[in-house]
Amino acid sequence: MAEATAAAPPEWATKEPCLMGIDEAGRGPVLGPMVYGCMYCARSYNNTLATLKFADSKTLKEEQREELFESLKVNSSIGWEVDVICPKDLSAKMLKKSKVNLNEISHNSAMGLVRKVLDMGILLAEVYIDTVGDPEKYRIKLTEKFPGIKFVVAKKADSLYPVVSGASIVAKVTRDRALRNWVFDETALNMHMKTGSGYPGDPDTKQWLEDHKHPVFGFPTLVRFSWGTCTPFFKDAVEVTWETDEIDEDATNNGSAKRQVKLSSLGFTGFKRKTEEIESSGKGRCKFFQARKLELVRKFQ
């Protein structure tokens, strides 16, 4: 998923051992993409890098970040990459049958960036990264995946290491731009982008969610449906029950609790159906029908 930013790696990066920083933007908000960014430079350039004022992106104003991003793009001693994970992929992964949690998605994205940079032929010696979950476990995971690279996993790495501050700017500016230029998949009327920060405490975010909720569809795909922030907005939405959730429940509760929408509630009644017997709609018929879930409808009501 990482987007190509440079066709060929800079020459120094294939000859000299390099340092790389990795950071993320938009992990917490209920809407928009989560962006992982990385920035790398030759080990010998690190001291110069420290003078470039790449502070943690959160402490900078938007214009300052934009400016710094433009300056690092034209700096031939620096390389960078981003991985943009769009909100519908985040929702989809977290709502899969076998759910992938946000930490795992984050780890995979960071490892994807390392893989990408290595595949470009860059001599990665050290990687600095803000932690997600337990720092030591994360460090071991990264080291096992990429033996030969020294990983430094730390809390607030973005304020400790200039190379991570740079990565943080790359990630943050990319996410801000993605939101500014967002094109809705949906063609519903009166949608707008006054989203606020995307955090539940932000009145603009609350208002935006209120303005864009739909009783059947929930929200536009800009929203991360798997976020708790969405839950109160689903209270008066139309109830939706999934066949795949049903299978999960059957497996764990031995079929004692079934919530599947009954066909009878949709106006069809089968033959000799006990109210709780809704699992296989071909039940009691020969295999041909069972395999196809074809039920004999005796009564239309």
Binding site: A188, F217, P220, V238, V240
Partner: peptide, 18 residues
Amino acid sequence: LPCGIKQNGGAPVSDYFK
């Protein structure tokens, strides 16, 4: 769809379901 939607009636499918 592989789910039950507990509503009987119209919905702006082409605006939201792409």
